[in-house]
Amino acid sequence: MRVGVPKEIKDHEDRVGLIPSSVRELVAHGHEVWVEKGAGKGAGIADRDYVAAGAKIVAETDAIWAGTDMIVKVKEPLAIERKKLRADQILFTYLHLAPDPDQARDLMASGATCIAYETVTSPLGTLPLLTPMSEVAGRMSVQVGAHALENHSKGRGILLGGVPGVAPAKVLILGGGVSGTHATTIAVGMGADVTVVDRSPEALRRLVAQFGSRIKTVFSTRDSVADLVAKADLVIGTVLVPGAAAPKMITRPMLKTMKRGSVIVDVSIDQGGCTETSRPTTHSRPTYVVDGVVHYCVANMPGGVARTSTFALNNATLPFTLALADKGWRKALAEDPHLKNGLNVHAGRITHPAVAEALGFSLLAAEKALAA
């Protein structure tokens, strides 16, 4: 199979779909890999590194899309990229379709087979290709939140960990999953007053076992969230429903109760965000203010630490990339039910139930897509 790696074009997206060691594995399996010139530059990977691994460097992005059988990316294809997809092509990347009907329609119109990193599952019920970026985003959320609390960012002018004689910031973390746990790690390490909210008693017990008395845990209800939001200096939203739109944990009326200059970092923004006032932002213009509350809603947070993120992502995606290249999408998905859960679009139809429900589109079950 011929595998294509285009350069990412989303604002300040410096990650890249494959690293040289992944290329070397694909080449060793008998595949060709075409990498767009300069695709790895933002992650500190030179074209010569790809050449040494056996890749072909291609100067024109159109040639990558037109001349390969499978496109391996990081972020969802933008509109200009979606027009280049072919019906006989595989797209393997993050898609986050639930809040993005325009992308879904374009992918359906292309006829391509689109497999989303974020809905591939594991035997343990986890999301192994989302996990590494959730870890990165969770850790980043605290540092960007701390920065947004500074005066020049229109924040309250609070140091996250305080100083002797001055109380630390109150940090509220919505969701105790992967991102929430990693956000908790950094917030505790910086000396903040941390509360984590979740609807899973098991998640709360796990967090208490991990952090002990250094954090507070609260079972999530509308009343508990409303009470805690009003007291918080920094709210980090990490709520996730696999494949579906994120639930709106913070309503507009709740926002009006928050302190002027407090901050919301919405890690869930890829899936539509967990507050009613969240909208995607970019690394170029990461924040905006609503009702005196600073919102940080960058939809590709891990792109800000591209080298760490790229290598972490490839550690997770490589086995699945190899399976798709070695076997073709139909056999690879038929033999691996967890990879099959990653199928979001095929032959003009939505094939993931949570995505179809979120968008209000008809569903073609993945099993029927494989049998067709």
Results as ranks from 00 to 15, higher is better:
residue 211 F to E: 03
residue 221 T to H: 07
residue 279 R to K: 15
residue 209 A to F: 12
residue 201 P to A: 10
residue 297 C to D: 14
residue 253 P to S: 13
residue 182 H to A: 08
residue 240 L to I: 12
residue 297 C to S: 14
residue 233 D to C: 03
residue 186 I to E: 02
residue 239 V to R: 02
residue 174 L to P: 01
residue 285 R to P: 11
residue 278 S to K: 04
residue 241 V to D: 08
residue 291 D to N: 12
residue 246 A to Y: 02
residue 263 V to F: 06
residue 174 L to F: 02
residue 273 G to T: 14
residue 173 I to E: 00
residue 194 V to W: 05
residue 220 S to G: 07
residue 280 P to F: 14
residue 214 R to F: 01
residue 256 K to S: 10
residue 251 T to M: 08
residue 192 A to T: 09
residue 254 M to I: 08
residue 209 A to R: 13
residue 254 M to Q: 04
residue 180 G to D: 03
residue 166 V to N: 06
residue 216 K to I: 02
residue 219 F to P: 09
residue 184 T to D: 07
residue 205 R to S: 12
residue 190 M to G: 04
residue 171 V to F: 02
residue 241 V to R: 07
residue 261 G to T: 04
residue 268 S to L: 06
residue 218 V to N: 00
residue 194 V to G: 07
residue 205 R to D: 13
residue 219 F to Q: 10
residue 254 M to S: 04
residue 164 P to C: 13
residue 261 G to N: 06
residue 244 A to D: 10
residue 205 R to I: 11
residue 206 R to H: 06
residue 271 Q to I: 12
residue 224 S to L: 09
residue 238 T to E: 04
residue 258 M to N: 02
residue 279 R to H: 13
residue 260 R to A: 12
residue 222 R to G: 10
residue 266 D to L: 09
residue 251 T to H: 05
residue 217 T to A: 00
residue 184 T to E: 08
residue 258 M to E: 00
residue 276 E to G: 13
residue 258 M to V: 02
residue 191 G to Y: 09
residue 196 V to P: 04
residue 188 V to P: 02
residue 210 Q to E: 14
